[in-house]
Nucleic acid binder design. Structure first.
Length: 168
DNA sequence: TACATAAGAATAG
DNA sequence: CTATTCTTATGTA
């Protein structure tokens, strides 16, 4: 397992990948959060090494994205190291939402043939791949933001970024 | 329009 | 089994 960090105007993102693909993309609210997460993973019998070169393609995509360009993350190989089958289904479906578009929690459920909309939000709250899986494009059915585990500030920022109204 | 509340599916502990 | 969650629909004023 390898890791690196990407900086952007709202903070930093910790990236972790296995030999198969990207496993975690976590927004760091506090500077010490990276260390906490890394030591937690080391205790879970993962061997972690820092390796910036390995993330070159991903980093370039992030830089493009935060530059306001329409970026497609669907070609990035991913490798879930956690999550139930249901959660993975939700994440994969969410990943198909195109740049700049939004969906309701309920309509995600309908696409999956799932009756529960509450569990969609619950699954998305455990999304390990922020931005790669664009959970910020999922809104409540009335178009308001709803919740966001990484902070509504960030959700608002990402949505406005895709709308072309970069807030600073 | 705004606020309270019931229903609802899946998961973590 | 109970509590929790990035919800939705309905009722009341």
């Amino acid at each position: 397992m390898y890791y690196t960090q990407v900086s952007f105007p709202m903070g930093k993102i910790l990236l972790i990948k296995s030999n198969k693909g990207l496993s975690i993309a976590k927004y760091l609210k506090a500077p010490n959060e990276a260390g906490k997460l890394l030591s937690f993973l080391k205790n879970s019998s993962f061997t972690l090494k820092e390796n910036d070169k390995l993330f070159k393609p991903e980093k370039e995509l992030f830089y493009e994205y935060f530059n306001g360009k329409q970026t497609d993350f669907t070609c990035v190989p991913i490798d879930f190291i956690s999550g139930t089958p249901f959660q993975k289904k939700v994440w994969l479906e969410t990943r198909k939402i195109p740049y700049g578009k939004t969906e309701a929690y309920k309509s995600i459920g309908e696409k999956l043939g799932q009756k529960g909309f509450q569990s969609i939000g619950q699954a998305l709250s455990r999304n390990p791949l922020i931005i790669i899986v664009p959970c910020h494009r999922v809104l409540k059915s009335d178009g308001t933001l709803g919740g966001f585990s990484a902070g509504l500030k960030l959700k608002d920022y990402l949505l406005r970024l895709e709308q072309g109204n970069v807030p600073i």
